[in-house]
């Protein structure tokens, strides 16, 4: 993880245009911090706080007789967490090539670039408003000069069958729990110092008729220290995998298979797969990726 940086209010403000195609910014921006973000998005603030949000600039663009357009510029402090903020939601629509990854849907544009996550929401959806929303996004993306890296662990995801629209990056237990319940306690010893990825795979499942693919879920967690991983491995095995050891694939419920493996400070776990072979195959693939990553660094 990189050290956090935080833009000044002036720097944030300078990234947003004053006007766009007849829509003008209201004179007063609103600014929110880690502590005050609840005032902007209430319960949703938990998502961005868990990803270390530093500051948010909220600006409304108005045009007489037309719907407001609201821009929120999230300074996430690192490109990794900007990536996480973007991927908190499923991104199933086509990338509109604004910033490093983007999605336009239903009058809204979301993208990330460098350490910034940007949300542009129009209160109505018309072809004209879509044009303006996209133009605003392009202008902001151009103003953000740099680019940033995705989290390193994203490179470890096997590509075959990966559903790219569903890559979920997180740090702590509460965030994982919102996506997937792995027992009732923090079995994986997740904290603000861990990095996690939950990814969905489309795999062959011969038990499902008339279905193109079955579901498998791969979890990757990077721990800061080997000792953290050891504790997590023990609790995860006991609490989720019927005390199965590394590389042992077990049926955790009817027709649902799971298992795990560790390498260095990383834990790889298949939380669900339709059969043993698929679970083992995914673990083999991610291990291979990890070995390749190590070789690449040498």
């Amino acid at each position: 993880m990189t050290d956090k940086v935080r833009a000044s209010s002036e720097e944030l403000s300078s990234l947003l245009p004053e006007a766009m195609n007849g829509w003008k910014a209201l004179p007063s921006d609103r600014e929110f911090t880690f502590d005050t973000l609840f005032d902007l998005i209430n319960g949703g603030a938990e998502v961005y706080r868990s990803l270390n949000v530093q500051k948010v600039l909220d600006r409304t663009y108005k045009k007489a007789g037309a719907a407001d357009i609201i821009v929120d510029l999230f300074d996430m402090g690192s490109s990794q967490d900007a990536f996480g903020a973007f991927h908190h939601d499923i991104r199933e629509s086509a990338d509109v090539h604004i910033g490093q990854e983007s999605e336009y849907q239903g009058g809204s544009l979301f993208f990330w670039k460098d350490r910034f996550f940007v949300s542009i929401v129009a209160l109505e959806e018309t072809p004209r408003i879509k044009e303006v929303v996209l133009a605003l996004g392009k202008a902001i993306a151009v103003n953000i000069i740099g680019t940033g890296n995705k989290p390193d662990i994203v490179k470890l995801l096997p590509s075959k069958g990966l559903q790219k629209e569903q890559i979920f990056y997180f740090h702590d237990w509460k965030s994982l729990e919102r996506r997937y319940i792995v027992g009732q306690e923090n079995l994986l010893h997740l904290s603000k110092n861990t990095e996690g990825l939950l990814a969905r795979y489309c795999v062959m499942d011969f038990t499902i008729k008339n279905s193109e693919c079955g579901l498998a879920l791969l979890l990757i967690v990077a721990y800061p220290y080997r000792s953290d991983l050891s504790a997590a491995q023990q609790d995860f095995s006991t609490g989720y995998l019927k005390a199965a050891g590394p590389d042992e694939i077990v049926e955790i419920s009817n027709g649902v298979y799971a298992g795990f493996r560790t390498t260095g400070t990383h834990l790889f776990a298949v939380l669900e797969a339709p059969d043993q072979a698929t679970a083992k195959g995914l673990l083999d693939s991610v291990s291979l990726k990890k070995r390749g990553d190590i070789d690449e660094r040498r």
Binding site: D89, L123, E124
Partner: peptide
Amino acid sequence: GKGPHHFQARY
């Protein structure tokens, strides 16, 4: 809805 505000006019 989706996004920080969980709002899209379409929905």
